[in-house]
Simulated scan of single mutants.
Amino acid sequence: MPLTKPVRRKLHHRRTITCDGYERDDGLWDIEARMTDVKTGTVDNPERGGYVPAGEPFHDIWLRLTLDRTLKIYQAEAAIEASPFRICPAITGQYRKLEGTRIGSGWHRQASELLGGTSGCTHLNELLKPLATTAIQTLWPSTDEEVMKLGANVMLNTCHTWGQSSQVIKQYLPELYRAEGSDS
């Protein structure tokens, strides 16, 4: 077990996020994410027939981005199969606003401007980060060295490994390398 042994406890809730990347026959890529929230006990809910039984998804939410090798999004499709309120699925069409955008530097900010607040869904928006990194992982490894540069567009300066002063950047993307403390 990677974490220390916890005190005695009882599971009440499980959130599962699954992301899959598919190479399509037409040369594009489908990156899909699914989020489920499942309670271990029955939850009262007037909009779901009075209650949501234990073990039945409280949330079951999907998002698919279809993109090319440059991470340009050609199609975005969202679906909400289960939610606590009947109104929730009405927002899914808004995610087409991502079409024409490109995953890369500033993309999360752009997506937030398009779909933040009441223009989107909190849970669908939560799926955007793992979808972006899944897109990179789906295209990588590749014999195409451009994939490393695409990765840098999303990952540069997001962690110590992808920091501009790291040995990884110095070795694989020397044009982006900046020695620590340098102004250039």
Score class of each variant (00 low, 15 high):
E126A: 14
Q164V: 00
T36D: 09
I61P: 03
Q167P: 15
K10N: 10
W107Q: 09
L65I: 02
R69V: 10
R8A: 15
A82M: 02
G21R: 08
K72M: 07
A78C: 07
D30I: 04
Q137D: 00
T138I: 14
Y74R: 05
T122A: 00
Q167E: 15
K129W: 04
R8Q: 10
Q75C: 07
S166P: 12
E175Q: 04
G49F: 09
E77N: 13
V168Y: 01
K39D: 09
R109L: 14
E146R: 11
L173A: 13
H160I: 04
A79S: 07
C88S: 03
W29F: 07
G151H: 03
R8V: 10
W62D: 05
T70Q: 06
P46F: 09
T138C: 13
L115K: 04
D60N: 08
E23I: 04
M155F: 02
E113L: 14
M1C: 10
P84T: 15
P89K: 15
R64C: 07
S165E: 10
R96E: 08
G55M: 11
E47H: 13
R8D: 13
H13M: 15
R109S: 15
N157E: 05
E47S: 15
F58K: 05
Y95D: 05
N125K: 03
S165L: 09
R24P: 13
H12E: 15
S105R: 13
R109T: 14
P84H: 12
E126L: 10
V7Q: 11
V52R: 12
E180R: 01
W29M: 05
R109M: 12
H12Q: 14
G27C: 09
G21Q: 06
W62Y: 11
M35A: 03
V154F: 12
T40K: 13
R15M: 08
Q171A: 14
I73M: 08
G50I: 06
N153D: 00
R102D: 08
G151V: 06
T36Y: 05
I73R: 10
A79T: 11
M155I: 01
L127H: 02
Y74F: 11
I169Y: 06
D37I: 11
L98Q: 03
R69L: 03
A135P: 15
G41E: 04
G104W: 01
V52C: 12
C121W: 00
K129Q: 05
Y177T: 12
R102Y: 02
L67E: 13
P53K: 05
K149C: 13
L173V: 06
L139Q: 09
T4N: 07
S165I: 03
S182G: 08
L63P: 05
T101N: 02
R15P: 10
Y172W: 03
T101S: 09
E126M: 14
L139D: 06
P141Q: 07
R14Q: 13
G104A: 02
K10F: 04
P6M: 04
N153H: 01
E77I: 11
R34N: 01
L150H: 08
V154I: 15
P6G: 06
L63M: 10
S105E: 03
H59Y: 14
T4R: 06
T118F: 03
R102W: 04
K97L: 12
R64T: 09
K97S: 06
I73F: 07
Y177H: 14
I17C: 08
G55W: 11
P141E: 11
L98K: 05
N153V: 00
